[in-house]
Amino acid sequence: MNTPKVSDSIRCIAEATLPRRSETEPLFRKDWHARVFTLVVTLVHTQKIPWKSFQERLVVELAKHQTSMAPQTDEEVDLQYFDCWLAAAEETLRAEELINAEDVIAQIKVIKQTVHEIRDSQLIARS
C-alpha cells in the first residue's frame, strides 16, 4: 500500500473542483466587464439605483446559472459572472423605470448602423 500516492491522487481530484487561483489575475478580463461594472457603480454612487435592488437581481441571475458544480476556469467564472452583472444591470434599470426594453433595442440598432456607416466610409475612402 502506498498511502502518499493515494493521497496525492485524491488531492489532485479535489483541487480540480476549484478554479485556478492567482493573485495576479487581471482586474477585468474584458473591456465590457469594466464598463458594466463602472456603469452600475456610478449609478449607485449617484443614487440613481439602490445597490440592494441591483444585488438582489444579481443573486437571482447567479442562481439561474448555478446549476452545476462542474469545474470552471477563471475565465469561465468571469464570463458567466459578468453576464449575470449585465442582466441584473439591465433589469434594475428597467425596474427603476430609467430605461425600457424598446430603448435598448433601438440604441443597439443605432450603434450597429453607426458602425456600418463608419466601416462603409472607410471602405470607400480606401478604394
Partner: peptide, 13 residues
C-alpha cells in the same frame, strides 16, 4: 453580444 448591449446601456444612461 454583451459588449454591444453594455455600450447601448451606457449610451442611454
Amino acid at each position: 453580444g454583451a459588449a454591444l448591449r453594455v455600450r447601448a446601456l451606457e449610451e442611454l444612461a
